[in-house]
Design a protein around this nucleic acid. Structure first.
Lengths: 282, 282
DNA sequence: CGAATGTGGATTGTCAACAATCAATAACGC
DNA sequence: GCGTTATTGATTGTTGACAATCCACATTCG
């Protein structure tokens, strides 16, 4: 019976994964406020399921890094600081350049195949840009990079990238980016494809680094401005509005979020295990 | 009261994390067979807790990649193929070189601080090597690399590395490595430190790549030989000797070390101090 | 005698209820 | 009035039981 070789792969997903995917989409869509939220009881009630699967999904997302959980207090959606942006950028650079090297090292066939898939994604980009559909642009942008990593055939790199992509998406959605940058996206991505087919590893690395460095700079700038405004909002309304131009130092909200040091003692764990992203939003 | 600023970090861990740490240690220690095992009911019974936390811990490890879960079938400990080794190697190379760059880019102070910690680890190595304590060597080796990544101050890189380190550890423990390689470890690691303090990013990258490439080559070789033998084992012994591979179902009841009350450092109160947390000062 | 099918055992998936813990508010004493 | 302490409310952590699913073995039919 030819024709149905590879359809045994439908394998229904466990509910927890479905919930996790759904919540992930809502988080990166901006449906959740950045600060804090997400009580498992509420989710369970809304989805008409017990707290068990919801709890599992929440814990999964916590390990992906999209949610942070405080003991006996609940889980809260990740709040991104400029430091986080820098971390994400460094990590993405590492993963993506490694993926690029792997593809190029895998031979012409792999390179062509990857280039084809990437090109297909880039072709969709101009429409979204023209429509100024920022959400769509962000999605396509991330999909491009995800496809790049996936093309390396390295499941570890892909798994790592899922989290980074989600975090990047949060950035993109929650801080508005200058519109002139958006017009360069098509060109930049096309250049990466060209360098890939040319098997120019050095150039491709440089392009990736450059691409993300500029994006990150923009992001950080917008974010810092946002934080300044936010802080001014808190201090100004009542007391005397002090000179808000003091410096570029952003942080010091309250000594709460310990995103600082390297290895947090207990539960530093690891991202996703099963599915790739995929399902459309709802 | 100066001096006790940051000790509010003791924050009791949820039981699921304790269980996860414990299981992780047993996995990377080689206490679990490579093929398949791990029924949550058995673990729960042995640890005298309900299945809930155990399930959570298992799922956590699944997401770390140490266990793979089949729907409605259970979770099984990861079985490493040569392809996996390659993937791990590529990913580690990406993460560690990125970490190295970050440290060097962070300035002299950070470099010196990192070098000090790394040197302390390397100093312990010769003893283990002399004693031919392979497990200890593996532990120190991984601790070195983990410290390197942690020194970058990038929590994302650290999180990524946890899984890779655990997987690497599995490799090291389960395949015996040539003893001549072991003698080079001290030298190689020391060289990395030297390059770090010299702030020679290029050289350090090369050293890392070289260090892991040779190790990986060795590992792959040993592993392929192992697989050959294993395959011969299945085909050679005539009819049915045991059928150990596919369903073995090793009696978890008595076949395993009765961790319940017997030896081994299984103290629930102890926060586990093997490979993961790196509790900084102490 | 071989293959398809039915049955049994076991394990995971899911659920609702109980207990422990923490944050915030209110009351109290100084 | 301010600081300290008890109460309250809510949320998570944990538990045991029930239901769905799948694999393996035994049975039956061609």
């Amino acid at each position: 019976m030819p024709g149905l070789d590879d359809l045994a792969a439908l394998e229904e997903r466990p509910t927890a994964v479905l919930i996790a995917n759904r919540l992930r989409n809502r988080i990166i869509n901006g449906s959740f406020e950045l600060g804090e939220q997400v009580t498992e009881a509420a989710i369970a009630a809304k989805l008409k399921v017990s707290r068990g699967p919801v709890r599992e999904a929440l814990q999964r997302l916590s390990q992906e890094g999209l949610l942070v959980g405080h003991r006996n207090r609940g889980v809260f959606v990740l709040e991104l600081t400029p430091k986080d942006v820098h971390e994400i950028y460094v990590a993405r650079r590492a993963v993506e350049t490694a993926a690029a090297s792997e593809i190029i090292g895998a031979g012409d066939k792999a390179v062509r195949q990857a280039a084809r898939k990437l090109a297909a994604l880039v072709r969709k980009l101009p429409d979204a840009v023209a429509a100024r559909d920022w959400s769509k642009v962000a999605e396509l942008d991330l999909k491009f990079h995800e496809a790049l990593v996936a093309a390396s055939g390295n499941s570890r790199l892909s798994r790592m990238f899922v989290t980074l992509a989600a975090e990047s998406r949060i950035c993109m959605v929650h801080v508005k980016i200058s519109y002139r940058r958006i017009d360069m996206l098509v060109e930049e991505h096309q250049q990466m494809i060209d360098l890939l087919v040319a098997k120019d590893a050095e150039g491709l690395h440089a392009a990736i680094v450059n691409h993300m460095e500029t994006a990150t700079a923009d992001l950080t700038e917008s974010m810092e401005e946002m934080l300044r405004l936010q802080e001014a909002d808190v201090t100004a309304p009542d007391a005397e509005a002090e000179a808000p131009s003091t410096n570029g130092q952003t942080p010091s909200r309250d000594g709460k979020t310990p995103a600082g040091a390297a290895a947090t003692p207990d539960a530093v764990s690891k991202p996703d295990a099963a599915a790739v992203p995929a399902p459309a939003s709802a």
